[in-house]
Amino acid sequence: MQLDFKARELTVKLVYYGPALSGKTTNLQAIHRLLSPEGRGRLMTLETRDDRTLFFDLLPLSFATDSGLTVRIKLFTVPGQVIHNSTRKLVLQGADGVAFIADSQVQEVRANQASFKDLRRNLKENGLDPSKLPLVIQYNKRDLPNIRSEEDIMRMASKGKEPTYLATATHGTGVAETFLGLVELTWDHLEREHHLKERFGLDHTEVTKDLQSRFEAAGEGGGA
């Protein structure tokens, strides 16, 4: 989190992490499409010819709050391929929250797990405590055959503490839920750490509600 007192601006960084081709960029594209346009920046994608994210994607969002603070949210994705580890680590620097986008297909178990371990390692190397970082998990590509069942996922999720969502990012379902879930978790955390309410009168539920209404305003929000 970065606070600019002079400009009365709060900048928060959220990172979409996960294995290559799990749908991180597609999530950002869907958020961009589903959000009403005011305060929504251009989606910047730095990709190579083969359509894979080379460095990262960046979607800036910003909105005014009743407290007078302008809240700026920077949504990043990381490149999933193994060789881009340094980039992932750099993008992860200063992250306030992470959405882990997993591929639901049964044969992707290992790739999901390897990427998750990689996330844990990179967080530690950036001096972030994985157990304290706001983290949500999304099982994407629910429309495909041969996926892990919802029952299985929820049973596994009940053993951990991360909120877990199901999504089909290409249809835009579950995307808003995942994003709002992450924003809510992140804001709870920021409130506990920085007492934004007491110091700036910024109510941490306001941000989530505001974003939610902007998904609804755009008409297609909601999702699964």
């Binding site: 882990f100 999901n112 996922i153 951990g160 877990t164």
Partner: peptide, 20 residues
């Protein structure tokens, strides 16, 4: 496979507990 992986206490169970 990852049942006794480090001591992260259910960290990412939704991913790490997937049976194979």
């Amino acid at each position: 496979l990852n049942e006794d992986d480090e001591d992260d206490d259910g960290f990412g169970a939704a991913l790490m507990m997937a049976p194979e």
